[in-house]
Amino acid sequence: MNLKIALFGIAREIVGQSSLEVSAPEGQSVQALLAGLREQYPALGGLSSLAVAVNNEYAEEETTLTERDEIALIPPVSGG
């Protein structure tokens, strides 16, 4: 399946674009997605934290992803 991932802030700058399409096996977990992205973009590993959001909620590492999900990479937030 193909997952589309929205990118923001420093994650967008590290990857060099505002969204990313990755092909992943069915049942891909958040944890596996993150591991793959950190391998492809090592600078992501240097961030204080890196979360994944699924449909506007923070996802657990074991959450499985589907093509219909709205997925985003969430680097450390700094609002306020």
């Binding site: 923001f8 802030g9 985003a72 969430i74 937030v77 609002g79 306020g80």
Partner: peptide, 14 residues
């Protein structure tokens, strides 16, 4: 509200 906003709301500042 302001303390929690800073921890969870998806806004980034450069």
């Amino acid at each position: 509200i302001i303390d929690t906003l800073k921890q969870v709301v998806t806004i980034w500042k450069k």
